[in-house]
Amino acid sequence: MSVNSRSDREREHFNALATDLGSVWWGSITKAGQLRLDERAKLAIRYGGLSPGKVVLEPGAGNAEFTKRLATSGATIVGVEISPNQVAIANERLIEFPKAKVVVGDINKLDFPDGTFDAIVGNAVLHHFDLITALPEMLRVLKPGGSFFFTEPNMLNPQIAVEKNIKFIGRALQNSPDETAFFRWQIDSILKRNGFSRIWVKPFDFLHPGVPDSLIPFFQKFSHFLSNIPVIKEIGGSLQIYAQR
């Protein structure tokens, strides 16, 4: 499979979602989905060290649903997104955040000099990339000692395993043709092989975006509880992934 063919499929998929929904994924527009994004952005700001004066890359920025949350840190946020349709929506949403923008680009060939960014952060995007080419590019544009933080789907979670491996179910849930998910030890190993250091990967999150609004307070508490229980936490819906250059 060539890098170009995968990139073309991702572009087509997210262009279509922008046209049909004006969003990236159904789960980002529910109340529970919005709360999940809030939590992930707080984690990215914390572990990415986002603050005024920092310059941050957000790969796969989509329609800026996550970008606008990152922008509250005061850092300069540069989102890169392969879908022009999503970028058009994104920059309309970022008018109130003058230090944030999203540009059209391909993660496999970034148009930035070496060591441009203090941090690279994102939500649920690494599993769309061809990491063989994407990780070296991200490492190249990250400053020495810079932070790398993503939240990504956990392949040990039963629902994630089903939708990523049974393609017709994945299509019904708006999965793109090539996306996957990660085992904790797998992404740890991939990052090491690509030159990253100080790596840690932590499973978390049992709050599903489809939870009814009235049940969210209960499931939020339950999610935090389960995310701290040994063995059970391993099947959480997501992984926190941290590394440094």
Results as ranks from 00 to 15, higher is better:
151 T>M: 10
132 I>V: 11
116 T>M: 05
147 S>A: 12
118 D>S: 14
130 D>Q: 13
85 N>D: 15
155 M>K: 14
138 M>Y: 04
94 L>I: 02
89 I>Q: 10
141 V>I: 13
83 S>R: 14
112 F>M: 06
102 V>S: 07
161 A>V: 01
141 V>Q: 04
160 I>V: 14
102 V>L: 10
131 L>G: 03
140 R>M: 03
144 P>W: 01
100 A>N: 13
93 R>L: 05
149 F>Y: 14
82 I>S: 13
157 N>G: 09
85 N>A: 15
125 V>A: 13
97 F>T: 03
140 R>G: 02
141 V>F: 05
83 S>A: 15
115 G>W: 00
124 A>S: 15
139 L>H: 15
98 P>H: 14
127 H>W: 09
90 A>F: 08
104 V>Q: 14
114 D>L: 01
117 F>T: 07
160 I>C: 03
110 L>C: 04
90 A>V: 08
105 G>Y: 12
119 A>C: 07
93 R>T: 06
132 I>P: 00
113 P>A: 06
124 A>D: 13
160 I>M: 10
104 V>N: 13
89 I>K: 10
137 E>Y: 04
126 L>A: 08
111 D>P: 04
82 I>Y: 13
111 D>T: 11
161 A>W: 15
96 E>L: 07
129 F>Y: 12
123 N>D: 11
122 G>E: 10
162 V>D: 03
123 N>G: 11
116 T>R: 05
142 L>S: 03
139 L>A: 14
93 R>N: 10
154 N>Q: 04
120 I>F: 01
141 V>A: 05
87 V>K: 12
125 V>T: 15
119 A>S: 15
109 K>E: 12
107 I>P: 01
90 A>I: 08
148 F>Q: 00
156 L>G: 00
127 H>K: 09
112 F>T: 05
